[in-house]
Amino acid sequence: MSLSVSAVDDLPSDAAQRPLVRAAGLVKEFRRVKRVSGRLGGLRTLFSRDYDVIRAVNDVSFDIHSGELVGYLGPNGAGKSTTIKMLTGILTPTAGAVSVADRDPSRERKANALNIGVVFGQRSQLWWDLPLRESFRAVRDLYGVPTMEGDRRQHELVKLLDMDEFLDAPVRQLSLGQRMRGDIAAAMLYQPRLLYLDEPTVGLDVVAKQRIREFIAHVNAERGTTVVLTTHDLEDVEQLCRRIVLIDHGRVLYDGALTELMARYAPYRDLVVTLASPADVAVNGAEQIGRDGPVVTLRFRSDRVKAPEIIGAVTAAHEVVDLSVAEPRLEAVIGRIYTQRGLPESPA
């Protein structure tokens, strides 16, 4: 009986369930030539044989299934970009295995390229000196999009991202927000199964950010495009990602649902009350964590006490002018993880 069960697990009927992206024990080391200083340092560095070995990614494993929208987070230098570069085939892993749609990205770089869209917020895939329209044309040619199909998709993307007015402007003249829209559109023209977004909202204003977020949510929901999002803007993550993978020092610290991370490391709410006359507030089940004149902040475990109970207790003891309940911010949790360079003790 147990034999047949394990046999069923191995059957190819499983194929549909197989993850789109699979990283297993990924390691990437860089050899950095030690710089030679002094006269002709640059030239001598060229012939130097002294290396420092830097391990940027250290045993990273995760699976990503079709249709997921995953936030890949970590502080600067955590190894995020290096991981993404291995997934895109730009870098070859030092050890471990990576597959995207059952292909080894670095061995089958060109075939893999057709499956993936890559958008770097800090770099553009568009042709800088030419009108945006030319970049779209070149992308369609490079990825072999049939003419009619390409026209239809381009038209749709131009409408969706409101790019009509700058389609004929050289890319170098576009604002950052316009350029980002152009970059993301270029990546979606050939409808890749997987879209990597590396800091797509960096440097954008509030409106431009929101527009990009809405578009990402749209392609994920409507097209079923799998999205891996790397960002330092945690509002991107709060609005878009159900799952996050958190890494630091090249290791995975957390991989799971966003809500679970919050429940585990920030299972509290803050009640902010403005009192008629300044006073300290002592209520069962809540702790006063701050007071600024008549404004008192109380923190309580939302999994143990209900907000109305705390509010009831406060209003029974004090005259309350105003009150609000604040959700914990992901920023506070992530900030704590980054500074401790590890997962905090669960406050349970």
Partner: peptide, 22 residues
């Protein structure tokens, strides 16, 4: 102007390597 040299310097070579062409 956009030779491999300047693309390596600006880190844009990474973009070129994600293309389905050698």
């Amino acid at each position: 102007y956009s030779s491999i040299e300047s693309r390596v310097r600006d880190g844009l070579i990474g973009v070129d390597l994600t293309r389905p062409i050698g």
